[in-house]
Design a protein around this nucleic acid. Structure first.
Lengths: 212, 212
DNA sequence: TATATAAGTTAGGTTAGCCTAACATTTATG
DNA sequence: CATAAATGTTAGGCTAACCTAACTTATATA
């Protein structure tokens, strides 16, 4: 019953980072959770110490692989609970978020899996959001081997211009990609829908994906 | 997410008081919850300040009517959750207590009622304990009118000899009674099973019951 | 009934998570 | 490109719940 706050922060960061497809600012967490900048700063340091987020003084924040894993566990529980509360208990969609918020910290992995089964493994929550598969681990785009397929999670890009370029290429959350070619120290070639695109190696290490 | 501890204390006190059918000692709460005597003492004062328990320095402790009400809300949620986890999710009976413990603080009254309905209004939890009807209010035996029936909740007797006398008369939790006669400032006459018994007015104000 | 043991209290401390206010740094804009 | 606005940090404080150790009161028993 101790890590309630940490879980809330991780879920908030996950949501914000996916929403913006880039590294986020601490003030956004502050606004999202309704907690003062100072308190957020404090928690950010704790999360960084546990290597759940990447953080440097006065800089932006993003989840590490470990952080994504932890965050997805909570997001998974949260969305399964929302689905349960809505579909099985018949609680109004406007209320399920708040209630899931309180329950997500207490529900065990086992219970969440059973609820998932009871719901017949839904893909989305009542609000339409994807329910993450918290068993599959996130990795960087650069880690995927040639010919393999993956789904974009979100990037950890800091610069807005860079992000715009990436977004305009279609490298956005949920995008399906296939690695076509990898040149050592050179760009990475990939298939995205019907088009082939090339991305610099430096950018590849700023894009989180999940292997198919 | 603030009153988790208070809820745990209330449920503990309810359980202990019902189990022993008398006012309880602070050291028992300490052992039951695995919390130091000093911390229990601190919380006891807070609960007393909120009039959830009756408490005097160096003396025994028992729930007030208000405290019983609050405690039963938690006990109700706890037991409904245990039933749900066991019967619907199929989680082992040895695990459901711990899990319900974590969930009970977050679950809303509305959700608990819906779970209750889903379970077809069970009377007992997986461990056999009665699920309290948290809608019906507790009162003192002396408050019940002649000819009315009630169920004994537990007493708030402090003295062991007195308790033994009362227990031997059959005034124990779950006992069904009917008030036969009430004499002003005199004893109260009641039916208990096949026997009629008389109880002094002073003791009547130390027995909590629920009117039928 | 005196006294050892059990129970309850007090004092003083810790930690997590929150706060405001003041200050520092970064970013955006005239 | 200077400076205003936004963002981030630091200092200092608060509260709820916990703790240990020392002390007081109540209870049980020789």
């Amino acid at each position: 019953m101790k890590d309630i706050s940490k879980e809330d922060y991780l879920r908030a960061i996950y949501h914000l980072q996916k929403d913006q497809n880039m590294a986020i600012r601490s003030v956004e967490i502050s606004k999202y959770l309704g907690i003062s900048k100072a308190s957020v700063n404090e928690m950010i340091r704790k999360l960084a110490k546990e290597e759940l987020i990447e953080y440097k003084l006065y800089s932006s924040i993003n989840l590490t692989k470990k952080g994504i894993e932890e965050a997805e566990k909570i997001v998974y529980k949260h969305k399964i609970l929302e689905s349960f509360l809505s579909k099985i208990l018949g609680i109004g969609k406007n209320k399920v978020h708040e209630e899931a918020d309180k329950l997500e910290h207490g529900v065990s992995k086992e219970a969440a899996k059973k609820l998932d089964k009871l719901l017949k493994n839904p893909k989305t929550c009542p609000h339409g959001g994807k329910i993450p598969n918290s068993d599959k681990k996130a990795c960087l785009l650069g880690d995927i081997c040639v010919n393999n397929e993956a789904t974009v999670l979100f990037t950890k890009i800091k610069n807005k211009q860079t992000l715009e370029r990436i977004n305009s290429l279609g490298i956005v959350p949920e995008a399906k990609i296939k690695i076509l070619n990898k040149i050592k120290k050179g760009p990475l070639e990939l298939q995205l829908g019907n088009s082939k695109i090339a991305i610099g190696g430096d950018i590849c290490s700023q894009i989180y994906v999940k292997e198919k």
